[in-house]
Amino acid sequence: MSIPVLSNLNLLFDQPILLVDLVANGFMIGAIFALAAFGMALVWGVMNIINIAQGEFVMLGGFVTLFLMEAGMPAVISVPLAVAVLFIVGGGFYYLVIDRVVDRDMFSSVLATFGISILLSQLSNQFFGADVRTVDPGLGTWLLADGMVSLPWVKLIAFILTLVIGVGLWLFLKSSRLGQAIRATAQNPRAARVLGINTRRVYALTYSLNAALCGAAGGLVVMAWAIHPYMGLPYTVRSFMVVIVAGLGNLPGVVLAGLGLGAAENLAGFILGAEFQIAFVFCLMILVLVWRNMMLKRKRKYLK
C-alpha cells in the first residue's frame, strides 16, 4: 500500500507537469458536478427540498442530447434543446408531485423525490434500454506540453459553461424581479404570499430551473463520459456533497467547492490509486464540515 503511494509521489516530483494535467482535468470534472449542484442548492435553499432525483434529471438530459445528436443535430443545438425539454419535465413533476409535498416536512419530500428517481430510472431502462451510451462531439483535444497535458474541448466547454451559468444565476437572483421573488420566497414564503408573490409559480419555476441545469450537465456528461439508466445516484450524492461543503445559499461557494473537490478527487486518484478516489473526497467532506463547525463555534453559531 505505502510503496505505490511513494512511487506515485515520486512520479509527480519527477514530472511536475503531470500536476497541471491532473488539476486541470480535476477542475473540469468538478465543473460538471457543480452544474448539477447549482440546481440542488437552489431547490434546497428556496423550497427546503433535497431533490434525490437530481441524478436522474442529469441522465434524462444526457439521453435527450444523445437522441438529438444521433438524429444528426450538432451539439450547440442539442444541449440547449435538452435544457428546454428538461425545463418542461421539471415543471411537470412540480405540478404532479412536488406541489403536494412542498409544505410538508423534509421526510415527505425526500420520499417523493426518491420515488421520482426510481420511476425515471426504470422508465428509461424500459424505453431506452440498459446499454451504456455515449456520443462523440468530434471537438478534439487541446494538447499542451508535448501531449503531457491534454484537455478535451468538451470538458473545457463544460468548465466555461459552469462559470457563465454561475455568474448568470447570481445576477438573475440579485437583480431581476423574478430573482427577487425567488429570494423573498426563500426567506419567508408566507410573507411573500402576503405581499402578492405567487409562491406556487416561484416554486414551479425554481424546480424547472433545477431540472434545466441538470439537463445541461447531462448533455455534457454524455459527450465527455457515458450515460445509462442507473447512473443517477452518484450524481445526486456528488451534488449533495458540493452543496454541503459550499453551504446553503452560497452560489460562488458551489463553484469553488465543485472545482476544488474535482481537483482533490483527481489528485487522490493518482496518488492513492483509483480505489480511494471517491473515498478520499468523502473524507475531505467530513473534514471540511468539522472545520466549518469549529469556526462557527468561535462565534457561538452552529452548523445548520
Binding site: N8, L11, Q15, L18, D21, L22, N25, G26, I29, G147, M148, S150, V221, A224, W225, A226, M231, P234, E265, N266, L267, A268, G269, F270, A274, Q277
Partner: peptide, 12 residues
C-alpha cells in the same frame, strides 16, 4: 465516471 487520473499515470 472519469478515469483521467489513471490515464494520466499511463501517460507518465
Amino acid at each position: 465516471s472519469d478515469m483521467s487520473a489513471t490515464l494520466t499515470k499511463v501517460k507518465a
